[in-house]
Design a binder for these strands. Structure first.
Lengths: 110, 110
DNA sequence: TGACAATACCTCGTGTATCTATGTATAATA
DNA sequence: TATTATACATAGATACACGAGGTATTGTCA
């Protein structure tokens, strides 16, 4: 039984896949690009996460040939994955609200 | 050598202590109150954190008698702790900005 | 008075998250 | 031809957070 506290990684990956199907390496580069390198996710982090998302039925995987001729493994968000994304997005927002509430309760911080 | 990724717990604890000296149990209850129970930090989480903050010189500890007659161990933020708080606050804001950037890059999310 | 809840501190074991390091292989480029 | 970038993957190490448990005091209420 998985029981994560915040699910940062899952949230980020699911969000990207909500936009379009992506392959692993692309997720890493897109994440870095869109977050201006706040998130430089490592392969050792991403691939296990992708596999666990697949095991939970939140993503489907298929192989496709890139224009370059290379094989890539694309991931597609399922209905279940979209639902998980919705839940985790709300969890993130509640969490961020919580942190901000604590921070703003301290007058010493601008 | 400690090397945390986001330092949620440290950030929250340091923030509270920036407002006033507090004892452990109070930190837990205040955290729950101010975050509307988003953060119900467990004692098994807090006390090791307090001890490690103390070891790093970010907080000082002293015992004091409560009006009730009970002994309490209060924690006081040091200069070093204030500096750590500043750094971690900025790290949090960068992180939250990063997540929001990813989320808002996905049109499917309201 | 006796039982129980709340207060107040603490440690240990465990699960989980993430990183580093490593391995494999192909395509592009210098 | 050597190196870099692309692309996938696993294993080991470490750190974070929790659950479970332990001790002891104070307050409450039947």
């Amino acid at each position: 039984m998985k029981k994560k506290t915040i699910d940062h990684t899952d949230l980020l990956v699911l969000t990207l896949l909500a936009g379009e199907d992506m392959y692993g390496y692309q997720i890493i580069t897109e994440l870095a690009r869109r977050s201006d390198h706040t998130f430089d996710m490592k392969e050792g982090t991403l691939y296990p996460v992708l596999h666990s998302l697949w095991q939970e039925g939140q993503v489907e995987a298929y192989e496709a040939e890139a224009p370059t001729g290379r094989k890539r493994k694309y991931y597609h968000l399922t209905k279940k994955g979209r639902e998980a994304l919705r839940v985790e997005t709300q969890a993130w927002r509640a969490y961020a609200r919580g942190v901000d509430a604590i921070l703003s309760s301290c007058p010493a911080l601008g």
